[in-house]
Design a binder for these strands. Sequence first.
DNA 1: GAGTATTATTTCAATACTCGAAAAAATAAT
DNA 2: ATTATTTTTTCGAGTATTGAAATAATACTC
Lengths: 412, 412
Amino acid sequence: MARGVADTEMIRRQNRDLILGALRRAGPLSRSQIAADTGLSNATLTAIASEFVSQGVLVDLESTAGESRVRGRPSVKLAHNRKAAFTLLVELDVTRCRISLLDYAGILVDRIESAITPATFAETSAPHFLAERIQLIYARNANAADRLLIVAISVQGILSSEETGMKWSPIAHLAGVDIVTPLQDQFGLSVKLYKRGRLMADGMRWLEPELAGKTIATVFIGSTVGMGLTFADTDRIGSDIGTEFGHMIHVPDGALCRCGAVGCIEAYAADYGILRSAYSVPRHTPPAQAVPPDDFRQIVSRARMGDRNALHAFNLAGSAIGYGLNRLMSIFNLDQIVILGPGTAAYDLMQPGITEGATASLMGELRGLPPVTLVAEASEPIYRGLTMKALTDLDRTVFAAMNQPAIAQVAE
Amino acid sequence: MARGVADTEMIRRQNRDLILGALRRAGPLSRSQIAADTGLSNATLTAIASEFVSQGVLVDLESTAGESRVRGRPSVKLAHNRKAAFTLLVELDVTRCRISLLDYAGILVDRIESAITPATFAETSAPHFLAERIQLIYARNANAADRLLIVAISVQGILSSEETGMKWSPIAHLAGVDIVTPLQDQFGLSVKLYKRGRLMADGMRWLEPELAGKTIATVFIGSTVGMGLTFADTDRIGSDIGTEFGHMIHVPDGALCRCGAVGCIEAYAADYGILRSAYSVPRHTPPAQAVPPDDFRQIVSRARMGDRNALHAFNLAGSAIGYGLNRLMSIFNLDQIVILGPGTAAYDLMQPGITEGATASLMGELRGLPPVTLVAEASEPIYRGLTMKALTDLDRTVFAAMNQPAIAQVAE
DNA sequence: GAGTATTATTTCAATACTCGAAAAAATAAT
DNA sequence: ATTATTTTTTCGAGTATTGAAATAATACTC
């Protein structure tokens, strides 16, 4: 239940939100379909839909000829008005920065891609680097400029407590700078940072709707180990978080991690950790900067051929992840686990270790390891998560609330 | 934001809930005070309050003479109508079972206390044991019988996933039986189980209102180790959970715990674990059934006198808790830690270990150990938590929703 | 090709709520 | 007795949702 005073205005806002949400989930729908979907009456749908259309938030879709084969008055589908607003998605990675301009229907309009090196943010501060590129987007898309409202940024690492910058990041020289405020001030936009792990988790829920209503841990295994959680709690959308699972301490005084601490799960289960174990390199040896995919594949095939050291390395990795999941499960119930990323190629090798670790406690034994789904490609859920965060943020904060025909009447 | 269709009825329900909540938080208040508190208008307060009074949910309090010294129309305080409903609180412990009958204002009306031994639930099944006593309460309080609506039960251990019974409990022979359903069927009541750790956490928030709006871990250290969490998320009341923190694995293959698993935090930080370490008893030795308080005090004083073994034991305990908190902090931010129970008497001895463990990871180093508050007596927050769960459950599910003068017109 | 069946959408009257402003009530101060 | 002051109630306006009835827009049938 929401807090705060409830009045007639809130009813409208909430029902508007309900309608926008139904369209996000299912794509264009007719008024009757939305009514059935949401539980609202047809009368209300007429009222709210006409309001939306006159405000330029939604548009009636031309019925594609030769599609309706049923008798009766043909239904008219409602869809997001692409020109109602625009959003910028920024994917900040260790190796690249990709900025995408999307319209209100989520369709890509423009894109800038730049390489990132460890030197990049030493030479140009991150907010300045981004501002330059945003400027360029503005220049190239004058028509979108006045309706560009929000920026959603995907980052890796630990957010500052105000969520305006990073406390730590694997992206060099990114930490310690306020990224959000300068951009907000310069462009007058709403700017938000999202942890990559959180986006993975949320993105999976959009990609696999049957995961809704479950508490899910989404674990990325690759050059790092990351995790996002989405909670069963359907009360609130956005009930998802990013965690520092990869840097949860697996064993006190354990192997050296890229983050500088020792004993992190990542130090055992990320590619560099597995490589280190497989070659019996001392656990305190500083990790390799990057592991070429071929090197990783080689370890995998060695393990499959029965190589003891390689098998042991995957066992250690699985065990680190399994104990981590176990510790998570002593905090709350997990209904499902999704494993993402290159590590999925070696899941069978890690599985015994994972199961052993996950069931090592009383709790783990009683509940068992939750069902595991593998998804090799992580970039899709991340992009989807970022997209939907941005668009539903628009839906909720801008268009659900708008009850004057404010911005509305878009000419063009 | 709540899901679902919003209509005019929901407005009323939500605002009724707001008013009942304000009264729970602050005690009896006048209409104007509630209006100021909640943000509702005076007009609305008149409307809803008169509805409540005519339904017998609230009553106008007689103004205590010689109290108002201000000029103007004297205010009339509203209070919960004690006779509107009744609730049963059941505190199930390893050694005792206490059943309390409370009226709608939270005032104790009747109470039954029984000793529990390991044999108790072997001889009589738990639901039957409880039914007998509830029967007795009914017999002794005929006037409350038809308005006794809900039962809230405090338990220790792991709930079954449907939350109708226990999967495991330190209370002998309690696990594996459905406790909720038989009682619900027999008496036609709404029965709910609550983990003790969750109640501690929620109770603390009622006892120390300044803790509201923070994410808090409430850790019990005594004959067991338990933890509840309350989340900053003020969106929903009831955003609190009980955890199995005590049985989170501290070290794979570690000390033997009472639960049968090895390496649990409890096996290092509960009184029996500390005793075992202090006397250098092998870590796989089955733990003592119960530790007499004097034995524990003796170890404490030895440690204070500089005894190496005793100091080491507290250091191990602190470290187990510290690493546990660290792992928790890699999942979400903690703003505050509250430590409860007998273990607080030795907090100074455990503190170095706790700090060391809590700051061992990158995340822990960056954020540091959150502020710690000590509360020696744990029974008060537990009882308060149980009380408020029961009463706010009544507020929300029964009285906020009631829009017909249904049950209402209570004669006497 | 006109009439009919069928489905989608809109219109309409009823009902429920909140709110601000004005009125009424109840007390202390003068 | 009158006035000032504070709380509570009353009243009219404004905004929502809803079910039922009306209207609109097709396909089907003969």
